[in-house]
Every structure is written in structure tokens, then in C-alpha cells.
Design a protein around this nucleic acid. Structure first.
Length: 254
DNA sequence: ATGTCACAGTCCCTGTGA
């Protein structure tokens, strides 16, 4: 079984790249972020033709998350139920697995109110996950907008005083590990950067100036079944790429 | 260390967010 998370930076702009990727890689479950669409614009039909049921939690100009599945989608929950008007998280059960797609707030800068919103948002996610059913396999994926350690940043000196690497963000992200989850890509590749995002500017991709901020957290049940996790850098190449690459996890079937 | 991309509205450029 193959699960992928991908911040597509507008599904309207990226649909051809996304469907091409799905045809080639045939994941069973797909977690999308930054669809930047209303639910009315979401291309349910195109995904159905590729064999996917899909659910979307859209907002319009900003944010928006989706789950696609070849193995069923039940018990869909949009948001945290805390009145947050931004469409940043959705969960569902696919083939017996509880699945979360997350688009964590960017934070903008350390002194911006959006940064406090980011920290609170991550802590709420941690609380929600800590109340999970321990009998049910769980994966929490998405764009976390946090590089968990300095290995996940091409040059920590460039990010001094910036978001994505600050200790409060990293501490808040750790609430998922305190809830018993593992950062799967890092667990399987302890020494490699595995960057998933590169700025569009300055030729950052070709210079290797990346961050690892697209993450897949799994519980112990799924961790035991994990056989691989990797970033598909090829999807960052070519015409009209997202600034994020897809991050994939593979699991044995039982 | 900001050289790009995407969006909406002011609508073929500009401000905002990332």
C-alpha cells in the first residue's frame, strides 16, 4: 500500500501535473494541501476516472485540503471543530486506517500574530491526535511548515530569526511524537536531508536550497508495516511544478 | 537572501501570501 502527501500550491494550476503523477505512481491514498479551491471547483470527476473517491475541505483563494482514496473514505471530519474558519485539516478512515491531511499555518514571522496561530494550531493537532483510538492504524501527513531539526534545513544560519526552524515551532510539532507517532521519512533515513520544498526564487531547487517540511507521522501499528518512505524530487522538475515535492510512504498489506 | 508563482481585484498591472 502506498500513501502520498503533496502540497500542490493550487490544484487549479496543478491538475495536469497531479493526474500525471497519480497515473504513474498509483498511490492508494493521497493527501493534498493548498488546493486553493472552493468545493464546487474541486475536480471530483477527474479523480474518479483514475479510480479515486475524494473528499475536499475547500475555502477558495487560500488553503484547502483533500483526501483521495482507492480503498474507501468514511467518517470524514473537517477541521478541529474549534471554529477555525481556515480549511487546513481533514481526517477520514480509508481501508481501516485513520488518515489526516494537514496544512499547518506558515507563521509569516516570529513577531506576527500568524506565528501564535501556528503554535496554537500545532498544539491543537497534538491534543486531537492524543485522543485517538489506539487500536486503529493512524497516519498524519501534510505540509507542517516546520523543519523538525537542523538536518531538515539546507543552511540553518540563513534561517536564524525566521519561522520554520524556531524552537517553539519544533516543540509544538513534537506534540505528535509525545502522542506516540513517528516521523516516518526521518526514521527510515536518519542521515539524509530528504528535502521536500524549495523556494521558486533564486534557482533554489537546482542549488539544493531546500527544507524538509512535508512529513508523514505514523503510529506504531503502521510503523511496523512500513517498508519505504521517500521524496519524489522528479515532480519538482519540468513545467509548472509545485514548489513542494510529493512525499511517499509504502506499507506491507497487513 | 529574495532573482518566482498564484490569486483576486484595482483587471493586462498591483498587492498579498507563500
Amino acid at each position: 500500500m502506498k500513501i502520498v502527501t503533496w502540497n500542490v500550491n493550487s490544484l487549479t494550476a496543478r491538475l495536469a501535473r497531479v493526474t500525471e503523477w497519480l497515473r504513474e505512481h498509483e498511490p492508494d491514498i493521497v493527501l493534498l494541501q493548498e488546493t486553493k479551491q472552493t468545493d464546487a471547483k474541486f475536480p471530483f470527476g477527474e479523480f474518479e476516472q483514475l479510480g479515486y473517491q475524494s473528499v475536499h475541505y475547500g475555502q477558495g483563494q487560500w488553503n484547502g485540503v483533500a483526501i483521495l482514496s482507492k480503498i474507501g473514505i468514511d467518517d470524514v471530519v473537517r477541521g478541529f471543530g474549534d471554529g477555525d474558519p481556515e480549511a487546513r485539516v481533514m481526517s477520514a478512515t480509508c481501508g481501516g486506517i485513520r488518515v489526516y491531511t494537514c496544512y499547518v499555518p506558515n507563521g509569516r514571522s516570529l513577531d506576527d500574530p500568524h506565528y501564535d496561530y501556528k503554535i496554537k494550531w500545532l498544539n491543537t493537532l497534538g491534543e486531537v491526535i492524543s485522543r485517538r483510538d489506539p487500536e486503529q492504524p493512524l497516519i498524519v501527513g501534510g505540509d507542517f511548515n516546520v523543519a523538525p531539526t537542523d538536518l531538515d534545513c539546507y543552511d540553518p544560519s540563513v534561517f536564524e530569526g525566521a519561522t520554520h526552524v524556531s524552537q517553539p515551532e519544533r516543540d509544538a510539532l513534537h506534540s505528535l511524537e509525545r502522542a506516540g507517532l513517528r516521523d516516518l521519512t526521518r526514521a527510515l533515513h536518519p542521515g539524509e536531508p530528504c528535502f521536500s520544498w524549495w523556494d521558486y526564487r533564486n534557482g533554489a531547487f537546482h542549488r539544493g536550497w531546500g527544507l524538509r517540511i512535508d512529513l508523514l507521522f505514523v503510529d506504531a501499528l503502521l510503523f511496523e508495516r512500513a517498508t519505504a518512505s521517500y521524496v519524489d524530487r522528479d515532480a519538482r522538475k519540468g513545467e509548472k511544478p509545485s514548489d513542494h515535492a510529493p512525499v511517499v510512504a509504502e506499507f506491507s498489506s497487513n
